[in-house]
Design a protein around this nucleic acid. Structure first.
Lengths: 159, 159
DNA sequence: GGTTGATATGTTATACTGTTACGCTTATCA
DNA sequence: TGATAAGCGTAACAGTATAACATATCAACC
């Protein structure tokens, strides 16, 4: 058991579930979940936090799965492009998607104290953003919605 | 006249207005609008677009106002900290605030074609984000809300 | 006047993040 | 079988950001 979305949960089971979902999605869409890509996703899932590209690269290198930055960036690009992972702009880091398969506009809550990142239901927020953009004639394609603050655990007793 | 917020406007007048507002705000709050800080703000205002820190630094260096990265970063930190400029996470860049003084949760529209950045009314979006975060026990302190897409000018004819 | 503390700046070095470019391998398919 | 595309390996480099330490300035205070 470890923290995810600020809550305790069965970590191993959640990894299995997500991996299975992603495998299925790749099969259905003809995407190649190659060893590097799969292992990268597994690393993100195992950590259950936002990881920098170079942090991922270090792990991959340890396992003989690529030693140069482009290897990690390509894998992360693949994962983010297909919604299996997300990029946290504020942290220049990446996190495994908590709900792969579901078409969702993610929104992230970043704890400034412990760096935990939770994925919150972002549909209403994304809609509000689109609504704000439309009057200006702006065509919204992607959104990055991130809140920084304190997670429940860190909010207790910390100013 | 040049583009701001995807619209034409009187550029010189808008620079004057903002500078005046910021000067007043600094006076009232006892903040030091030093030469480097003031010039940095002027640069951002004159360009009326998101500028990278090193781009700002190059200009400052040309004018003998500091030649090393920390100089630019400190000035930009000061401006963003006090709401006179904003950081665009998606671009690793900075832009002068269009409405200094007004307490506002900014939300940005970034054109992926011409890189123009507009500041849109973000209050409803920020509120929606807070509403999404609260049930998880997250205490929101700052928000970064950015939309990427096409501005009105670039949306015409471009796919 | 001199001291002290707070704030801002100057400077060096370094760390972190991301991309370009090129070549090789493999899989696929006409 | 040859052409094409996708993925990976590698080297080199470009862009972004900070740590650490020195210096300067100025106001408050004794």
């Amino acid at each position: 058991m470890t923290a995810n979305g600020f809550h305790q949960h069965d970590h191993a089971a959640c990894i299995e579930t997500v991996l299975g979902t992603v495998e299925q999605a790749c099969a259905e869409e003809g995407l190649q979940l190659t060893p590097v890509r799969r292992r990268t996703l597994e690393l993100l899932l195992a950590e259950h936090r936002a990881m920098g590209a170079y942090e991922v690269l270090d792990r991959l290198r340890d396992e003989g799965l690529g030693s140069q930055p482009p290897v990690a960036y390509r894998a992360l690009d693949f994962l983010t492009k297909h919604g299996f992972a997300h990029r946290i702009e504020r942290l220049n880091a990446f996190i495994a998607c908590a709900h792969p398969g579901e078409r969702h506009a993610p929104c992230f809550l970043i704890c400034r104290a412990c760096n935990a990142v939770a994925e919150a239901p972002g549909r209403p927020v994304a809609e509000a953003l689109r609504a704000a953009a439309a009057p200006l004639g702006f065509v919204t394609e992607r959104v990055a919605i991130e809140a920084e603050g304190l997670c429940p655990a860190c909010a207790v007793g910390k100013p």
